[in-house]
């Protein structure tokens, strides 16, 4: 299409005129959307609050410092709880995600018409609900505590881990599986040898990456009563103990940095 013949010579352009116009109109539409969004947000903003934000920040900072160093000792337990919630939640999430991933991937699903759409829907559902929302619902169901936190983390992780693993399954070369079938292996054996080793690095990498994310997410679950350091944070904010809040924020920062270092370390070693 982009080749035009004019006066007997061939001209080449990147796009046809129609494509050019379509792109222009698309860009125009997006710009309009941006302007509309900014004006809608601005209309709902109380600018008086924004104007004295600087003062408020100064005030908050003054109340946070100096941090209450002695309080940090009693944070050990809730921090450990947070790590437990993240780790158990990730493990449970991966366990649930694995069969769903195999049911979702085209080469391994038992039925493309029936099982695959259901499995994918479950993965999407899991992803579309944030951990804190899962926790909110589970606290209502199970009462406050770490169990609700573990399950919230697990349910949110299923969609993430499942999606990445099922994409890895779909991208893996199928020739090794075929080769296994030609040896007379059964279907399960062919997958266990021809496919599983290929997706092992992805499975490990994704699980550890999700664990790292989950440590961050587990720190806030306490805000809705699902255990961990978030409970301490909530309590300190409610009591306006800002010198403790700052200690908690430093503790969370330290934990997250630690988790990211561990995760990066391990994932670099996979391959």
């Amino acid at each position: 299409m982009p080749v035009l013949v004019r006066d007997g010579t061939r001209e080449w352009r990147r796009r046809t005129s129609a494509e050019q116009w379509l792109r222009f109109l698309g860009a125009l539409g997006l710009t309009g959307l941006l302007v509309a969004a900014v004006s809608a947000i601005s209309a709902q903003t109380t600018w008086a609050f924004i104007l004295d934000a600087g003062l408020q920040l100064q005030d908050l900072a003054l109340r946070m410092f100096p941090p209450d160093g002695a309080y940090s000792v009693s944070l050990f337990r809730p921090l450990l709880d947070t790590l437990h919630i993240a780790t158990l939640g990730t493990a449970l999430g991966v366990l649930i995600a694995l069969p769903l991933a195999f049911a979702s991937a085209r080469p391994t699903t038992p039925s493309r018409r029936y099982v695959r759409p259901i499995a994918i829907l479950l993965l999407v559902t899991s992803r579309s609900v944030n951990s804190i929302i899962w926790a909110l619902m589970l606290v209502v169901l199970l009462g406050p505590g770490m169990l609700a936190g573990v399950l919230a983390i697990a349910f949110r992780s299923v969609g993430f881990v499942g999606k990445l693993i099922y994409e890895a399954i779909e991208e893996a070369p199928t020739l090794p599986v075929t080769a296994m079938e030609t040896t007379g292996a059964g279907r399960a054996q062919a997958l266990a040898f021809g496919l599983l080793p290929q997706i092992m690095p992805t499975m490990a990498g994704v699980s550890i990456y999700r664990w790292e994310i989950n440590i961050r997410e587990a720190t806030i679950l306490g805000l809705v009563g699902a255990g961990g350091i978030g409970m301490a944070l909530q309590a300190s904010i409610d009591a306006l103990r800002w010198s403790r809040v700052s200690v908690i924020l430093f503790a969370i920062l330290g934990t997250v940095v630690f988790a990211e270092l561990v995760s990066a370390r391990i994932r670099r070693g996979l391959g």
Partner: peptide, 25 residues
Amino acid sequence: ALIERLSVMENVLTGTLGRTGFWQS
């Protein structure tokens, strides 16, 4: 069509899958 991440021995032994049970393998 080898399984690249497995050892040479494991790859050769996959030839016996037709006569080896699932859990054994």
